[in-house]
Design a protein around this nucleic acid. Structure first.
Lengths: 139, 139
DNA sequence: CGGCATCCCCCGAGATACTG
DNA sequence: CAGTATCTCGGGGGATGCCG
């Protein structure tokens, strides 16, 4: 696997390959389920089913998949307890825990700006509905 | 043309509707292109084509689409200059500018942890390749 | 209980072509 | 130049079924 820092002039249909590898990390981290899972994993460890319940709307498939990716990235650990009904615990690693801050900041921003955004949307839509000038304020 | 965000109360196959509305904001904000666009919009205003060039890998369609969403959210303003070759400027609003900090934090986290993550992935994959115990460390 | 494997469907997003 | 409008396709992701 090569990181094409050059970005040749080929067809290059894959937007993920080009340049900066941090872009891939960003994609991973700025992912819907990742954000919610990291949030759901507190400081303690959580069981698979526990996460499934706490994260509303996630499917078992996506939970498994995202947890696997996080494990691969070294952000969570997986521990299987081979008891009668299998029990599996997930926990944030030290690295994973550091991710919580920036994500928390994002979440707080969302909460802080929720009202304003909702208002802006309503306003925007009302203007659109009333065919008010094709939304171009020319200058 | 309808803004899909409406979606009545139909069968509700949509995981986005439930509960907390900040979830929707998070989805919006933790979006691949949003992050990059907000990053590309500096403190000054940028032209459409300028953004298209600066954001590697984005299609014109997604750029338009995401900018539109951001405008609706009141995070960017759009100003059309009706000159001979049309010129359109995009600029972060005050609210939009506040978003830069949390996103910047996320980006910095990505940069800081890039190496570690890459190593972890390699390590994880090498273990997987060598059929080393089905990756379950039983306890 | 946790989690692959399969099937399948939907829409996100690229490519292309056309207007103001 | 900055869009909109169509068509199209791949794969993200849900539903279901089976196994350790």
């Amino acid at each position: 696997m090569v990181t094409t820092l050059e970005a040749g002039d080929r067809p290059l249909p894959d937007p993920y390959r080009q340049g900066c590898p941090t872009r891939r990390i960003l994609d991973r981290v700025a992912d819907r389920w990742t954000v919610l899972i990291v949030g759901a994993l507190g400081d303690d460890s959580r069981r698979f089913s526990e996460l499934l319940r706490r994260i509303e709307g996630i499917s078992q498939k996506m939970l498994t998949q995202t947890l696997r990716a996080l494990e691969r990235d070294g952000l969570v650990t997986r521990t299987a307890h081979l008891e009668v009904p299998v029990r599996v615990e997930y926990r944030l690693t030290d690295a994973g825990r550091t991710l919580r801050e920036p994500l928390k900041a994002l979440e707080e921003w969302s909460i802080a700006h929720f009202t304003g955004i909702a208002q802006s949307q309503t306003h925007y839509d009302s203007k659109a509905d009333a065919g008010e000038s094709p939304r171009d304020r020319a200058v």
